[in-house]
Design a protein around this nucleic acid. Structure first.
Length: 421
DNA sequence: TCTGGGGTCCTAGGACCC
DNA sequence: TCTGGGGTCCTAGGACCC
């Protein structure tokens, strides 16, 4: 049986772990750059502060209800996440860490321990060990366990745990659930299915599977079978190698100078290079893109991008940056106020399987050593080394991210350690 | 006069997920 | 004034192979 464990309002709950004084205060967490609302505590949902609302539009609601606002603190969330996951690991035969706040556990029937009780135990222990509230949904397929989890959150009577091992209960719940709530049914599919008369999850479960596969895709077929209790989506025990890497950011202020854009691109390249080496991959091509603000409909839009195949696959930041800067020169258009830039790496290859170019040089080996040393130092001394091209200056710092409501890195920085007096 | 049958690989675009 | 940042998978169509 699968137990889908999902943290409740994860980012908002993380901000509460070291702030018990905020236990009943409405909390909102903002996206990078403090742009919009991406997580809300239960109290915050109650006052109808919508998900995704731009921060400036949410201001009056925030003031009116004294909402405590936080910039996103990914160092904190990632650390809390790994604590939660290691507690879960000990309670399951197998575990798939599905996202920063969710995991599928494999559990089985045990003497005098119904699934319901096992779910309650999981919930209690994560809360006790990590201070994190979770909901648990239990069912024979991943899709049904997501549905059970949805119910555990939605129906407070359930006490945070729903056991959906019984087929009759499955059908009863599906009859109450709009089809758009099913894992794998997004906005477009929902609209399309509704037009065919499929309104609830149960409608979909009982729909003609062959026809729908033909009309849509094999993915929908799998979803339907999973609703019927036939497992089609396997547990992924180890995360598959990445196929692409994307690093992008919006700017704190609009950027209209090519020098400033070059710094932003450099810094994205540097992050992308780190990720690439952490994955132990080389990239065979690099793209960059820059964009104006798509919401500013009255102003001129520009969103150019360009790609370059590399002479031979690499993970050397300087090499990648040289390529990126050439691409920037190619696409730069003066006279626009850019809002965002990004770097993408694709065609990632395993160096073990690499066919080296004919003139594979000593230079390449030196660069490997250099990257290795930089990564080691940065790991040991928290990002103390970087390329000069990424250092903000007095004239050029508008591209830096805004984070005006950042909480301390309670668990990952000595200086931010909580003090009790 | 009549012109087969079976594949792979790549890319772009769309849909989905968190 | 101010609207996030990642990812994956599937399909269709074109180019190419024998």
């Amino acid at each position: 049986m699968y137990a889908m464990v999902d943290c409740n309002n994860f980012y908002a709950s993380c901000e509460r772990v070291f702030r018990p004084d905020l236990a009943t205060t409405p909390i909102a967490v903002l996206s990078n750059n403090d742009g919009c609302v991406i997580a809300r505590s239960a109290e915050c949902k109650q006052i109808n502060l919508p998900m995704g609302m731009p921060t400036f539009k949410a201001q009056s609601l925030i003031r009116q209800h004294s909402v405590k606002v936080f910039s996103s603190n990914y160092a904190l969330y990632a650390d809390i996440s790994s604590r939660v996951m290691s507690v879960l690991e000990e309670m399951a035969f197998d575990i798939e860490v599905y996202s920063i706040d969710e995991a599928f556990l494999v559990i089985s029937e045990q003497a005098n321990q119904s699934f319901e009780i096992q779910g309650q135990t999981i919930k209690k222990r994560v809360n006790q060990y990590c201070g994190m509230p979770v909901s648990v949904g239990i069912a024979p397929t991943k899709t049904l366990s997501k549905l059970a989890n949805y119910a555990a959150k939605k129906y407070t009577k359930a006490g945070g745990v729903v056991d959906l091992s019984n087929p009759e209960r499955q059908r009863n719940l599906m009859a109450l659930t709009p089809v758009g709530e099913i894992w794998g049914i997004g906005r477009n599919m929902k609209r399309s299915l509704n037009a065919l008369g499929v309104q609830t999850a149960l409608d979909l479960c009982d729909a003609p599977v062959k026809e729908l596969r033909k009309r849509y895709s094999v993915l929908l077929e799998k979803t339907i079978n999973e609703l019927r209790g036939i497992p089609c989506i396997d547990l992924e025990l180890e995360s598959p190698a990445k196929r692409e890497i994307v690093c992008s950011r919006s700017f704190g202020h609009k950027v209209d100078s090519v020098d400033e854009m070059a710094m932003a691109i450099s810094s994205h390249v540097e992050r992308a290079g780190k990720k690439l080496r952490k994955e132990q991959r080389l990239t065979s091509s690099i793209s960059i893109f820059i964009r104006t603000n798509r919401y500013a409909e009255q102003s001129q839009q520009s969103r150019p991008s360009a790609t370059m195949q590399l002479f031979s696959p690499t993970n050397d930041t300087s090499e990648l940056n040289q390529a990126a800067q050439r691409l920037l020169k190619r696409i730069w258009q003066q006279g626009f106020a850019y809002q965002r830039a990004g770097v993408m790496l694709h065609g990632l290859v395993d160096p073990q399987n690499l066919q080296y170019e004919l003139f594979h040089s000593e230079q390449a080996e030196r660069s490997q050593r250099l990257m290795g040393v930089m990564d080691q130092i940065n790991q040991r001394y928290q990002n103390t080394m970087c390329y000069a091209s990424t250092l903000p200056t007095k004239q050029h710092n508008g591209w830096l991210m805004r984070r005006e409501h950042l909480s301390p890195a309670y668990t990952t920085r000595w200086a931010d350690l909580l003090r009790v007096s």
